[in-house]
Design a binder for these strands. Structure first.
Length: 269
DNA sequence: ACCACAACCTGGCCGC
DNA sequence: TGCGGCCAGGTTGTGG
């Protein structure tokens, strides 16, 4: 589920259930999920620590602990959390934590791409991330400067988490459509005006998606089980051959940097 | 330094 | 029903 609005929705919905809870047991079923430690060392370090908060940076979930370490989780393509009163037999549950309110936090991930990190210094994991797109201090001038350094397609630049943190394939395509910019254009060919429109489009889009609790595609849902509804507002993403909502030209799909890209060949220049 | 591409995994869907 | 091929919201490592 994992672009900024979906990860933020996870953080918001987990927060009331997790803040203040002590972790009393940890079970790692798929060791590769834990990037920083062997499973038993990871479990031992988490045991008896208390979760102080649930936050987000880019597409990472952050769980600062009273041990001074921070548990950092990236959901990648198919990771999700849910809570249940007993360990569930559901498929693809790779990690469980028992909380002192007797509920089990389940980490489920069909493709097993998600990763857990336990770090004293979160910067070890987050250090290369670019600005938060919804942070008012992220300026159009800084965005333009960052894009100037790259000749690759602007679509690929938007997916580079060092340029701006939190965009993925859906919101990159939707932002370029909203700003009428052709995804194939070299990043350094954008004018200051283009970049200013693109930045505004990114912010509007993410704020609207957040209000809808994200885009639930396929059957992945936030922890409380209610799917996000932003998918209904996608203008181009996975709408190949459907008419452009502005001009009626069929939406095209092509591959840029290995990722499917959807755009209107008439409206985007 | 830059960029394309494979690898990491599983499952859904489509055509034959 | 089965099988091959392609697709999927991400990131990292390799190699040209």
């Amino acid at each position: 589920m994992p672009e900024l609005p979906e990860v933020e929705t996870f953080a918001r919905e987990l927060r009331p259930d997790l803040v203040g809870q002590r972790i009393t047991a940890v079970e790692v079923r798929w060791p590769a999920i834990v990037a920083t430690h062997p499973p038993d060392a990871f479990a031992a370090l988490l045991q008896e620590t208390r979760i102080l908060d649930v936050g987000r940076r880019g597409k990472y979930l952050l769980f600062p602990l009273n041990s001074g370490e921070t548990l950092i989780v990236h959901l990648r393509m198919t990771g999700r959390f849910f809570l249940a009163p007993t360990p569930q037999r559901e498929k693809h549950v790779h990690l469980l934590m028992l909380l002192d309110n007797e509920r089990w936090l389940h980490y489920q991930d069909v493709r097993k791409f998600g990763r857990f990190y336990l770090e004293e210094d979160p910067q070890q994991v987050l250090g290369k991330l670019g600005p938060e797109p919804l942070d008012p201090s992220w300026s159009s001038a800084a965005f333009w400067q960052a894009l100037q350094k790259h000749r690759l397609p602007v679509k690929s630049a938007l997916l580079d988490q060092r340029i701006v943190a939190g965009l993925g394939n859906i919101y990159a395509d939707e932002a370029l459509f909203a700003a009428s910019i052709d995804p194939r254009r070299p990043a350094n060919s954008l004018t200051r005006g283009d970049v200013s429109r693109l930045q505004a489009a990114i912010r509007n889009l993410l704020a609207a998606a957040l209000r809808a609790r994200g885009s639930s595609v396929s059957d992945y849902v936030p922890p409380n089980g209610v799917p996000g509804t932003f998918r209904a507002q996608h203008q181009v993403y996975r709408r190949t051959d459907e008419p452009c909502p502005h001009c009626g030209t069929p939406i095209r799909r092509l591959r840029i940097g290995g990722r499917s890209t959807h755009f209107c060949p008439h409206c985007q220049h």
